[in-house]
Design a protein around this nucleic acid. Structure first.
Lengths: 145, 145
DNA sequence: CTGACTAATGCAACAACTTGCAAGAGCGAG
DNA sequence: CTCGCTCTTGCAAGTTGTTGCATTAGTCAG
C-alpha cells in the first residue's frame, strides 16, 4: 500500500472523509517525523497545493488531534507543536536551558498514571506529555560552575 | 501588613518594580483563589482601573510567571489559566468528561520527577501540572452503562 | 531631596488562531 | 451511475495574545 493510500485508510478508519486537504496535512506530519508548528504545516501543505486555506489546516489539525492521529503539545511557552502518532505512545523531556527535546518512553509515565488511578481513582490520559526541566548536560554545567 | 503591602514586598523580593498595574494583577489573582483566564484578569483589573492597557496585563502575567509568583496552565484545549502560587506546590486533575478540576498534592508528582532524575538525569520542573483524564465519578458512570 | 538610569506602560500594528456562513465535495443508498 | 445528505472548505470577520517604539515613572546613588 502506498503511503498515500495508507493515510487515506487511516482517515477512513477514524471516521473522516478522505479529502486532499486532510491527506496533505497528514503527509506533511508523517514525512517530517518530527514536531511541526501549525505555521510550518501550513507552509508545507501550500508547497504542494497553494490554494489550501489556512483555516482548513487549523481545523484539520484539531480534528486529527481529537481522533488521536496526531498529538498537540505545548513546549515551553508559546508555540504549539504537532506530531504524527505512529506506533507506541511516547513523551518528551524539554530542556528550558538549551532547548533540547529528548524522548521519554511510556513506562515511567504509565507508572505515574497508575499511581493516580490507585490513589485518586483518576484515569489519566497521558498520551503525549511534555515535561519541562533541565537536561543532564545543562544541569552538570551549572553545577560545575 | 496589609494585603497590598504584602504583594508589594513580594514583587520587590522578586526583583520587580512596584507599580499599580502589577499590584492590581496580583490582587486579582490572590483574591480569586482560583484559576482565572487572562481575559478575566483584564476584566477584574479594569473594574478598579479602567485605563490599564490589556497588553500590560499580558506582559505582567508573563513576568510574574517567569518569577514563579503565579502559574500558567493549559486546561484541555484552548484557554490559558493563571493562578496565584501561595504556599506549597500543587497540581490538578482535569476531567475531560465533566470538566471537574481536582487538586493533587505534590507527593506523587515529586516521585515521578525523582524517577526522571534517576533514569534520565533530567531535573524536571513540575511546579504546576494539569493532568487530563477521566475522574473517578465519570469513569464509574461509563463502566456502569 | 534631586537627578538619572532603566524597567514598565500605552499605543498601534502585527501574528496566531477561531468562527459563522454559504458553496462545494465525499460517500452510501437506491 | 445518480441523488442527496452531510461533512469540509473557503472566505472574511472576529478573538486572543505579542511586539517595537516612544513616553512615563519607580529606584537608587549622591
Amino acid at each position: 500500500m502506498s503511503c498515500r493510500e495508507e493515510s487515506a485508510a487511516t482517515l477512513r478508519r477514524a471516521g473522516h472523509r478522505v479529502t486532499s486537504a486532510k491527506l496533505l496535512v497528514i503527509e506533511a506530519l508523517r514525512h517530517a517525523e518530527d514536531h511541526l508548528s501549525a505555521t510550518a504545516v501550513i507552509e508545507q501543505v501550500r508547497r504542494d497545493s497553494p490554494h489550501v486555506n489556512e483555516s482548513t489546516v487549523y481545523r484539520t489539525l484539531g480534528a486529527l488531534r481529537d481522533s488521536r492521529l496526531i498529538s498537540e503539545t505545548t513546549f515551553g511557552h508559546g508555540e504549539v507543536a504537532y506530531e504524527w502518532l505512529g506506533e507506541r505512545p511516547h513523551h518528551h523531556l524539554v530542556c528550558n536551558s538549551c532547548g533540547a527535546v529528548d524522548e521519554l518512553s511510556d513506562e515511567i509515565v504509565a507508572g505515574f498514571a497508575e499511581q493516580l488511578s490507585r490513589t485518586h481513582g483518576f484515569v489519566a490520559d497521558l498520551q503525549h506529555l511534555a515535561v519541562p526541566g533541565v537536561c543532564a548536560k545543562c544541569a552538570n554545567e551549572t553545577a560545575g560552575r
